[in-house]
């Protein structure tokens, strides 16, 4: 079985930003993670798109500014259960 959505996202965020999974919290954002710059944000978006086989709208990408909102937007696009 696939891991829960939040676990998959945390692993991808940790990979792309080169930080430990344990350090990622719902509040993690470009303000709290040093490596989370604009290039890494794009890499993160692309990594999520490939992992979940979807494409984000430009408006969604603009809103994906912390873990909580990333999970909310993904949750609305990925069928769960």
């Amino acid at each position: 079985m696939a891991a829960p959505l939040s676990d998959r996202v945390r692993r991808i965020v940790a990979d792309v930003l080169d930080v430990s999974v344990a350090s990622i919290s719902p509040d993690s954002s470009p303000e709290t993670v040093d490596t989370w710059d604009s290039v890494h944000h794009l890499n993160l978006v692309l990594a999520l798109e490939q992992e979940f086989g979807l494409q984000f709208e430009p408006e969604e990408i603009d809103q994906m500014k912390d873990m909580q909102r990333i999970l909310a937007i993904l949750g609305s696009k990925v069928p769960q259960g």
């Binding site: 692993r11 990979d15 792309v16 930003l17 080169d18 692309l46 990594a47 490939q50």
Partner: peptide
Amino acid sequence: ASPSAGAFVVA
């Protein structure tokens, strides 16, 4: 061979 694995492999 995904973007996230790429970052991990480089690190």
